[in-house]
Amino acid sequence: MPLPEGEFDAYLFDCDGTIADSMPIHYKAWQQALGEWGADFPEELFYAWGGRTPVAVIQELNARQGLAMPVDVVNERREQVFQELLPTVAAVPEVVEHIEAAYGTVPFAVVSGSSRESVTASLTTLGLLDRFDVMVCAGEYLNGKPDPECFLTAATLLGVAPERCVVFEDAELGLQAAAAAGMAAVRVPPPWQRGQLSSR
Rank of each mutant, 00 (worst) to 15 (best):
D14M: 05
D14Y: 03
D14R: 08
C15T: 03
C15M: 10
C15I: 01
D16P: 02
G17P: 02
T18L: 01
T18F: 00
I19Q: 03
I19H: 05
I19S: 02
I19Y: 12
A20I: 14
D21A: 15
M23I: 02
M23S: 05
P24L: 10
P24H: 07
H26Q: 05
H26P: 01
A29L: 00
Q31M: 10
Q31L: 12
Q32G: 12
Q32W: 11
A33Q: 03
A33K: 03
E36Q: 13
A39I: 08
A39R: 08
D40S: 14
D40R: 05
F46T: 14
A48P: 08
A48D: 15
A48S: 13
W49G: 01
W49E: 13
G51I: 09
R52M: 05
R52P: 00
T53I: 04
T53H: 09
P54I: 13
P54N: 14
V55K: 09
V55N: 06
V57C: 04
E60F: 09
E60I: 11
E60M: 09
N62E: 07
A63M: 08
R64I: 14
Q65S: 11
G66Q: 14
L67G: 07
L67A: 04
L67H: 09
M69Y: 07
V71A: 11
V71Q: 05
V71F: 03
D72Y: 03
E76D: 12
E76I: 10
